[in-house]
Computed example of a mutant assay.
Amino acid sequence: MERRDFIRLSVASVGAGIIAPTIALANTSKPAVGADVYYTKEAPGRWSGKVATHSPSIEIEKAGGKVTVKIVTAHEMKGYEHYIVKHVLLDQNYAFIDEQLFDPTKNQAAISTFTLHDYSGPIYALSMCNKHDLWLNGAEV
């Protein structure tokens, strides 16, 4: 390799080493939303035929200051081949409240119940399928 080619290649490598990480990091400043992270009934993305069995339904019961949230995903539990991995409950700011993990060898259905005290406002449920990704639904408490 000639000296000029070596210098040109070295300068290009240093430039790429400085510019490439900057370009990669520029995309991380924007939070991922919607289909970048989860699917919904309104935006099922590539899983449009899976809404009925993957979107979690939310039932809410209030008694005094106690709120019971029941999440059901009408999805079959075919052992570890195809099942709902977990339900996650989020508050109005999408902050984690609680989760229920499922064991497909023991759980026949993806049903979870959570108890909240003195909560009002929007609530969100995530349902994670091992083959068809993460699904979000919301309700008002």
Rank of each mutant, 00 (worst) to 15 (best):
I111W: 00
T115C: 04
Y38M: 09
Q92W: 03
T105S: 08
V33A: 11
L116Y: 08
K62R: 14
S13G: 15
Y80Q: 13
G65Y: 01
S13R: 05
V33W: 08
H82P: 00
D91V: 05
S48T: 10
M128S: 06
K50R: 15
T105A: 11
S48D: 14
Y124Q: 05
D36L: 10
K62T: 10
K78E: 06
H87Y: 02
D118H: 06
Y80V: 09
I123F: 04
G15F: 13
K41E: 14
A110K: 02
P104S: 06
Y39D: 07
T115Q: 15
F114L: 07
K66I: 12
V85M: 14
G15M: 15
A95Y: 03
V69Q: 06
S57G: 05
T53D: 14
A95R: 11
K106Y: 05
T53V: 04
G49F: 11
I84S: 04
A24C: 07
L116E: 07
T113G: 04
I111A: 07
E99D: 11
G65D: 10
I97G: 06
V51Q: 12
M128T: 12
H75Q: 07
L90I: 01
G45C: 12
S13T: 13
A110I: 00
F114D: 00
P44G: 12
Q108P: 00
T28C: 04
L90M: 05
G15Q: 09
Y83P: 01
L25N: 13
G45N: 08
P21D: 03
H75M: 03
T73R: 05
I84F: 01
T113V: 14
I18D: 04
A110Y: 02
A52R: 15
H117T: 14
H87L: 04
L9P: 00
P122N: 14
E59V: 02
I123Y: 05
Q100A: 07
L89P: 03
N27Q: 09
S10R: 07
Y80F: 15
K131Q: 15
R8M: 05
E42H: 13
Y83V: 00
P21S: 08
Q100I: 04
G49A: 13
P31W: 05
R8L: 08
T53R: 13
F6Q: 06
V88G: 03
G34I: 04
V67N: 10
E61R: 13
R8A: 08
A16Q: 02
H75C: 11
N93K: 13
E42Q: 15
I97F: 07
E42F: 13
V37L: 11
T22R: 11
A26Q: 06
I123L: 14
